[in-house]
Amino acid sequence: MSSSTTDNGTEFTHFKSIERALKIPVFFAKPYCSSDKPHIENINGLIRQYIPKGKSFDEISDDEIRQIQNQLNNRPRKKLGYKTPYEVFFLHL
């Protein structure tokens, strides 16, 4: 069964609508406990290869964000059997 673990930010106030839309339970990580959400921490690390910590997103164009997104979505992952997130997403549609 799939689930989603999120931060405790206000952006997840309406988590019930996420649960209904995705038909999966949403859990909340304990504050300052990155081990509760290792997949998010992993992608944060991958993003940091392109955008150093402390750099303002105001300095990054929408086109640059799309390029990074495209590179990450087409990067094979061991966790996905060396398939890309893009491949796995479309396998499950």
Rank of each mutant, 00 (worst) to 15 (best):
L72H: 06
G54N: 10
Q49E: 15
H39W: 12
P52L: 10
P52Y: 11
E64I: 04
N44V: 06
L80Y: 06
K78V: 11
K30Y: 12
K16N: 01
Y32R: 08
G81E: 11
R75L: 13
G54F: 12
K53F: 14
N73C: 11
Y50D: 05
Q69R: 10
S2Y: 00
T6L: 00
T5A: 01
S4A: 06
Y82P: 02
G81Y: 08
N70L: 05
M1P: 02
I40K: 02
F57W: 14
G54R: 09
N74E: 09
S4D: 00
I24L: 15
D7G: 02
K37L: 04
K55W: 08
E87G: 05
Q49Y: 09
I18Q: 00
P38M: 13
K78H: 13
G9C: 04
I40Y: 03
I60H: 07
K37I: 06
Q71K: 11
V26E: 04
E41L: 07
N8K: 06
L93K: 14
K30N: 12
Q69D: 12
P38Q: 10
D63K: 13
G81H: 09
N70Q: 11
K53H: 09
E64C: 08
K53P: 09
N70K: 09
R48W: 09
I60C: 05
H14E: 05
V26I: 15
T6W: 00
I68N: 05
Q69A: 09
Q49N: 13
G81I: 07
T13P: 02
H92M: 12
Y82R: 05
Y86F: 15
R48L: 07
E11P: 03
T5G: 01
D36F: 03
S2W: 00
P31R: 12
M1F: 00
S56Q: 12
K83I: 06
L22V: 05
H39F: 14
E64R: 13
K37V: 03
K30A: 13
G81M: 10
S35H: 10
E19H: 01
Q71P: 02
F15Q: 01
K78M: 08
H92T: 13
R48H: 14
E59P: 03
F90Q: 09
F28C: 00
D36T: 08
M1Y: 03
Q67V: 14
R20M: 05
G81V: 11
